[in-house]
Write a protein that binds this DNA or RNA. Sequence first.
DNA 1: CGAATTCATCCTACTAGTAGGTAGATAACA
DNA 2: TGTTATCTACCTACTAGTAGGATGAATTCG
Lengths: 192, 192
Amino acid sequence: MTSTADKILDVAQTLIVAGGYNAFSYADISDAIGIRKASIHHHFPTKAELVTTLVDRYRQQTEAGMTSIQQQVSSPAEQLRFYLNFWQTCIRDASLPFCVCAMLAGEMQMLPEDVASRVRAHFHSLAKWLASVLQAGAEQRLFRLDKRPEDEAQVLMATVHGAMLSARAFNDPDLFAAIVDTQMARLLMQGR
Amino acid sequence: MTSTADKILDVAQTLIVAGGYNAFSYADISDAIGIRKASIHHHFPTKAELVTTLVDRYRQQTEAGMTSIQQQVSSPAEQLRFYLNFWQTCIRDASLPFCVCAMLAGEMQMLPEDVASRVRAHFHSLAKWLASVLQAGAEQRLFRLDKRPEDEAQVLMATVHGAMLSARAFNDPDLFAAIVDTQMARLLMQGR
DNA sequence: CGAATTCATCCTACTAGTAGGTAGATAACA
DNA sequence: TGTTATCTACCTACTAGTAGGATGAATTCG
């Protein structure tokens, strides 16, 4: 049993992932969960506060996911594989076919500052996590890095987000896996 | 001297690039170019038609750009460099800090079908052009491709779009160049 | 115990403002 | 002259957000 506030955030997340900040309204949420608009305003007085809370929750879930990956598997190569598989699955079964923060990043200039700063923070922490995994992998001679782990992490992150976009543009979930797997293979020291 | 219709498209393009399909209105354009809303409707009866025309124009400009690159420089490596430099410059001087179609691709599900199909078409032709450049470069031993040119083109395109997103998220235009140059360097057969 | 009170949740009904779009008059132009 | 471009004025639907009341479940008080 989930709370009303959580249900509101769930619907809002789905709608944001589908079309961004400006593509959803309180009325949409109202219709989706069978509650009056005013009741949504009771839980989240303004749209900015709603999305702020939403991004906070998303960041928390992401952080938990990262920690979980690092606890469950020890090999940096497998850790990266887990991260990529997560999105591969999300996109394939259409459960979360886009990163909330990647979606919002495109609208950065139009977002309330409270939201924008949190989106930026997500990008920072994701880049940091990827860099740490890449660095650990490089130290264990699992990855071959041409540049600093931080730089390679930026490339990888961009590829992942771009692959989400391409999968959507081509309406082909498998394209995400194809792009990301190519990049993953390039990181692994193949035939060296 | 540009026509009113072109001025409308110019403003609309700037606004779409800033926040997507749902983040601009006829009133915004009206304010920007000092013309009444109704006059915009004279040129573009509906918003869908406006954006459809806009994407058509953008695709035409892109096509012309590609052709121009292939006429002016012969080396596939330089052709690719030209393409990447174009975006590097656009993003750095903030003239066109995002690809219109990449922006719209994120909102694919909410777009009018006429717009969506054109966005898809842009992705197809861009992927095709990149693949042809990569293939030519591989044949001339300028690029080292791990996979088929079509697959490598998809990776490259995703990286470019993802780099646009990152540059925006981090509010750092130079990040685009850093990401894209790393990927470019990887394509070139550097001492391997 | 039971009554009074607080509180959270949800509601109906409303606001001011904006969305995309239309009708019809007027002006400029070929 | 008719055609193209622009205007004023308006429409309906929707936007985020507010005011104030009904319900019911805790909590406090006599």
